[in-house]
């Protein structure tokens, strides 16, 4: 049913609704769009569809009952994706929490590197890729686009891929710190390259660093570094136990 979303909504929300409808109403008949407390909610059955013309007559590869919450300030805030049915195992190894929350990708680096980060591009990109990955993981046993390590390690990997450097946390942090402090390459020959080689940047990572200055705003670099160095709450013993259980399917009768 069409929802009369009224005219009391802010322009930002109205525009977002329109963009989401334009993105999803072209091929997703079972998704509805509504507004809840300033965020746009997309809910219903998501059909994982072929994009290649050759496959049009096959129909959907898979269907998932989902609820996606898109904040009005998108793309500042990452959309929250919850799978409501059991179409995806609720296990860390499947990038899905016990509550069905899906970790679509590292949103920060996607945002910084994708050509188009509109909400349409999000649904047709990382969002679809996630479900396509799930399908192929189940059918072929591996992730078609690979997956990131969990937690901080994966975040560092994603940043390293974005920068084009080694993915150990120390190097990534050094380069981010360098970016935060520098608007351009230092002219001085005294400075050492942030990659830790001991060379000067001009003899080492000059291209990489000047590229980074172009591609990554300082504010964003600061935000990434904060996330990487954030003191994480240690897991409660019970939570550790729970995770061990969850990640060992052989302990269960299947």
């Amino acid at each position: 049913m069409p929802q009369n979303l009224g005219s009391t909504l802010s322009d930002e929300v109205q525009l977002l609704i329109r963009e989401i409808k334009d993105a999803l109403f072209v091929d997703q008949p079972y998704l509805e769009v509504s507004v809840q407390g300033g965020a746009v909610i997309v809910e219903g059955t998501y059909a994982l569809l072929p994009h290649l013309p050759l496959h049009q007559d096959m129909g959907a590869f898979a269907r998932h009952k989902v609820r996606v919450t898109v904040e009005a300030n998108y793309p500042k805030t990452e959309p929250v994706v919850v799978v409501l049915d059991r179409s995806i195992p609720r296990k860390d190894d499947y990038h899905c929490s016990s509550k069905g929350e899906c970790c679509i990708t590292v949103f920060e680096t996607w945002k910084a590197s994708a050509k188009d980060i509109s909400i349409a591009s999000y649904f047709n990109g990382p969002f679809r890729n996630f479900f396509l990955s799930q399908l192929l993981k189940r059918r072929k046993g591996h992730w078609p686009f690979d997956d990131w390590a969990h937690g901080e390690e994966g975040f560092a990997q994603a940043i390293a891929e974005f920068i084009g450097c080694r993915s150990d946390a120390a190097t990534v942090k050094n380069i981010l710190s360098w970016r935060i402090d520098n608007e351009c390459l230092p002219a001085s020959q005294d400075t050492q390259c942030p990659c830790g080689s001991g060379e000067t940047p001009s003899d080492c990572c000059a291209d990489l660093l000047s590229g980074l200055v172009q591609r990554l705003p300082q504010e964003e670099a600061r935000h990434w570094l904060e996330r990487l160095t954030k003191k994480r709450r240690p897991l409660a013993p019970r939570e550790i136990q729970r995770r061990i259980h969850k990640n060992r399917p052989f302990r269960r009768i299947q």
Partner: peptide
């Protein structure tokens, strides 16, 4: 060039 990888953000 649109591949993205799933992740798991452990708080």
């Amino acid at each position: 060039g649109n591949a993205t990888k799933p992740w798991l953000d452990i708080e």
